[in-house]
């Protein structure tokens, strides 16, 4: 509930900001404001109906897996109570919605449709459901490690929702810290429990890989500022947009699988999987550093010899 209240405060702050800056016409401003508040209300209603009602029927502290087995559904061999499954479904749907939205934003211009949605509104449409989803997941996290991971992602979502104007340097530093903290959070989720199936693990790993991939873009845009657009992957003829489309499809499946995995089954799994589970010096950090350095070295090789390369064809 606290998260919902915070979301509303941020929503109202954004609306005030939008009205002050007025990036588009008054009519669109009104529709946007109503839309934002409506989205907040929908979130609150969903929260109230499913989560609070779920709490009443299945109090967390007295949860007994054998009680009410007729309502329980099989999941990875473990029974998942219906109220918990409902929360998982809601969170999964919200996360999938964010990916589908980005996908539509990507495909619409290709079909000649100009959605004319501002960056602020984009952030709200994506990060408010994202925030609500992670609030739900945090409430059904099985142990302390996964709860901390959820909280890191919630903080990230809240920052993304803040209409803050920063200097380019602060923005660049944030863009470097953001993927690193997300990679750490997702790696905590994977390492928080031994009960995640191999299939789910492979999909959560995919999310980490895509976050690392996003990091490539960030560093590329920071280090290769002077590259002509026609030589970069942003050149439409490179076909890289196909990979962007595939990315969102993968992310939609991966986030769905993650929300439905054993970590978020409220199973009171308090056993730490390994010692040093919180250590950031793990293979995920190694993967980030090695892949990024490889990509950057190869990029330097390509962009250091652009003229020679372009003469090949």
């Amino acid at each position: 509930m606290i998260l919902t209240i915070i979301s509303f405060i941020v929503a109202i702050a954004t609306i005030i900001h939008v009205w002050k800056v007025r990036p588009f016409s008054t009519g669109i401003c009104v529709v946007t404001s109503i839309g934002l508040l409506l989205l907040g209300w929908i979130g609150t209603i969903i929260y109230w109906i499913y989560i609070l009602q779920g709490e009443k029927t299945s109090p967390k502290k007295t949860f007994n897996p054998t009680k009410g087995m007729e309502q329980a559904l099989q999941f990875n061999g473990e029974p998942v109570p219906k109220p918990i499954k409902l929360r998982q479904d809601i969170a999964a749907s919200l996360l999938v919605f964010t990916d589908i939205y980005w996908l539509i934003r990507l495909i619409a211009p290709l079909c000649g449709i100009n959605l004319a949605i501002s960056h602020i509104l984009d952030s709200y449409i994506v990060y408010l459901p994202f925030l609500i989803a992670w609030g739900i997941l945090c409430s059904i996290a099985s142990n302390k490690v996964s709860r901390i991971a959820s909280l890191i992602i919630i903080v990230f979502a809240l920052i993304m929702l803040m209409p803050i104007e920063t200097s380019p340097l602060t923005f660049a530093i944030f863009n470097i810290i953001k993927p690193l903290s997300l990679i750490y959070a997702y790696s905590l989720i994977i390492r928080s429990s031994n009960s995640i199936s191999n299939g789910d693990k492979s999909w959560i790993n995919t999310i980490i890989v895509f976050v690392i991939g996003g990091f490539f873009y960030t560093l590329f845009s920071l280090l290769f500022k002077d590259i002509d657009m026609q030589y970069s992957v942003t050149n439409p003829s490179s076909g890289f947009i196909l990979w962007n489309i595939i990315t969102y499809l993968f992310l939609a499946v991966a986030e769905y699988r993650m929300a439905k995995c054993a970590v978020f089954a409220d199973s009171n799994d308090s056993e730490p999987t390994s010692k040093g589970v919180y250590s950031p010096l793990n293979k995920y950090l190694a993967a980030t550093l090695i892949s990024i350095s490889t990509v950057l070295i190869l990029m330097f090789l390509v962009y250091g010899n652009v003229d020679a390369i372009e003469n090949i064809f």
């Binding site: 991939g213 490539f216 026609q230 030589y231 490179s238 990509v295 390509v302 372009e310 064809f313």
Partner: peptide, 17 residues
């Protein structure tokens, strides 16, 4: 005509992934 540098950059990204 597609830029070879752009195509190579796209492949490098996927190698990184």
């Amino acid at each position: 005509h597609t830029s070879l540098s752009a195509s190579l950059a796209a492949v490098i990204y996927l190698v990184g992934y």
